[in-house]
Amino acid sequence: MIAIVGAGVTGARVLEQLIRLGHTDFLLHDREEFRAELLAPKHRSSTTNISVVRKRNLVQAHVVVLTCGAPHNELALSFVQTGAHVVSMSDDVDDTTALLDLNDLATQHNRLLVVGAAASPGLTGLLLAHLSTQFDSIDEAHVAVHGTGGPDCARQHHSALAGSSVGWHDGSWLRRPSGSGRELCWFPEPVGAYDCYRAEVADPALLHRAMPQLQRISARISATRRDRFTARLPMLAPPNAEGGMGAVRIEVRGMRGVSRAMEIVGVAERLAHIAAIVAATTTHAIVNDNISAVGAHVLGGSEMPNAQLLRGVADAGLHIHQFVGA
């Protein structure tokens, strides 16, 4: 049985994807119960059983997918202690760090905690692992993201531009103000080019965890002038129910033979859809015992079946594109 915590935009997409993958028994929980009560009947059928439950009843689940807004670390702690595997979609820096700190506890309970199984982080780790096979060695990874998923994701995007970005630079963590470091990044069509800026996002820390040999890791998010001017203020307008078309790209640099090489891959799709596909594919692999690791891990790490997961993501309908001709 799979439990989904959060019945918002991302939670609904995760449920859709898991049903598509053939799963039939679900527990659904949201801190606002009416949202779960609204979502469940849309997907209930003679073969699909969805029960809306209170948090304490989620302990019956074999795998818990955390799709709600951060923080996830306390929820993950309680679920691991009760014997469930946990897939967290958190993209908050402090939260993902706290989740990775649960490694010893998860190992002790013989449970798997997947941290950052979403679009960025998540898909970026899988793409990094794939691209690393095209090089003799890699030393740089640079991520850029455009768009937001649901309202929680939009709030996270807003606060990420007000914080302090963290990047890995020649063996040490480099802090720079969010909103600095403008770079025009090209995303797959129909998104195209957007100015992207440093931001307080979890990707550098998680990609460093996945591939410690990298010397430089950075992450940027697209932003408008209004986004940057109002970043340190409360959100002036409530976020949209769901952002429009988004995109994720990762640029990897390294050595191929004696020459320096660079590869860029990306995906253009609604971010909640990308994140849901990654989380559902990871959950599916856990349920089918395709991941033998225990403890806290990130996608892209050597302990994860990255090629299989990326294939699952592509089979779910995500069109991954590679930049050519530069």
């Binding site: 403008r182 797959p188 940057r228 294939r311 592509a314 590679q322 930049f323 050519v324």
Partner: peptide, 25 residues
């Protein structure tokens, strides 16, 4: 300076093609 700074163009030409994943699972 913050709003009128020039973008750094990382790539100026080229295009996107579907990524070929290894067929074996």
């Amino acid at each position: 300076l913050r709003l009128k700074g020039r973008s750094v163009h990382t790539t100026r030409q080229g295009g996107w093609k579907p990524l070929q994943l290894p067929s074996d699972k």
